[in-house]
Simulated scan of single mutants.
Amino acid sequence: MSSPHELRRRIRSISGTAQITKAMEMVAASKMRKAQESALAGRPFVYRLYRIQREATTRMGDFSHPLLEVREVRKRAIILIGADKGLCGALNSNLFRLAAEFDTQSTLFITAGKVAAQFIAQTHRQLVAEFAYGDTPRFTEARAIAAYARDLFLKREVDQVQVIATRFINTLTQQPLCLEYLPVAEIKGLKIPGTRPEEELIADTTEALFEPSPEVVMGYLLLQYLDIYIYQVLLNAKASEQSARMVSMKNATDSAETLINDLTLEYNKLRQGNITQELLEIAGGQSD
């Protein structure tokens, strides 16, 4: 059985930890609201842009574009977008579980976030580029990641590029996903509202005219689409990270408070027992 002194020491130690987790919870909550608003505000535009891309790429006729070229996959690149810090529950481990499924010899990794880069280094995988993004992701950060991945594909250093990141659903739910990026095609595994099935798009024989030309329109559209794609992924990743950290720190604070209450009750019982024992000894001595 622990002594009163030991119990007091444990209570003070856990109280200090609870103060830290509470402060981290409040910081994450303030950042979470802004990150969630940014992620949700951009979705309607990204969904519309995706639908435009799907309509345009299926109606190009004989025109082709290097970013649409489907090749046999001998080498692939993975854009792994993780958190900058830990203490966000299972968020990072769920992402890394997906990344670990790919063959180490034929897969190159592009990372965004410090924890993602640390995972690739620790597991001795091929890291070709490391990028950073802040609590408020900027479009320039997304464009740099997109440009690097695009160059790898166009130079035929890889035959496919995929994105592993977390999709923000709500404060309590974040979904790890592996999504298609290059060649530009239908995104599988993610239901986008208003998008017609691939079979329906191909079967549609409505005439499509590109002005001034398919080369100009598609050259501009695909570059913008790929940049905005990564930007929206970064926004979702940051909203997921802050939400997961806030929930994780709240759970840690609640657990600490429960443990403090249990230890305090044990301390009071032990102290009361000691006092009762002393009173009995005093009473017994007087009777003697």
Rank of each mutant, 00 (worst) to 15 (best):
L40A: 07
R125M: 13
A35K: 11
T57Q: 14
M24E: 06
L95N: 04
E69S: 01
A208L: 13
P44L: 13
P66T: 09
S30V: 15
I192G: 15
L270Y: 04
E101I: 10
Q232C: 04
P66E: 11
A18K: 08
K22N: 13
A142I: 09
A99D: 00
R71P: 03
E141V: 03
M246W: 00
F131S: 00
A144S: 01
I11G: 01
G16L: 06
T111V: 04
S213N: 01
F96D: 10
F109C: 06
T21G: 05
F102P: 08
P183I: 12
D84T: 03
I164R: 10
Q162G: 10
A29T: 05
L223D: 11
E25R: 14
V233L: 04
P197R: 09
T136G: 03
D262E: 13
M1Y: 08
L270N: 02
L87K: 04
R51H: 15
L280D: 09
P212E: 09
L226R: 07
P4V: 01
F119M: 10
H5R: 13
A56V: 10
P214I: 08
L223T: 12
I145T: 01
Y229W: 07
L108C: 12
A132L: 05
H5D: 11
T171E: 14
Q232H: 15
R9H: 03
A149W: 07
Q118Y: 07
T258D: 11
Q162A: 15
Q174F: 02
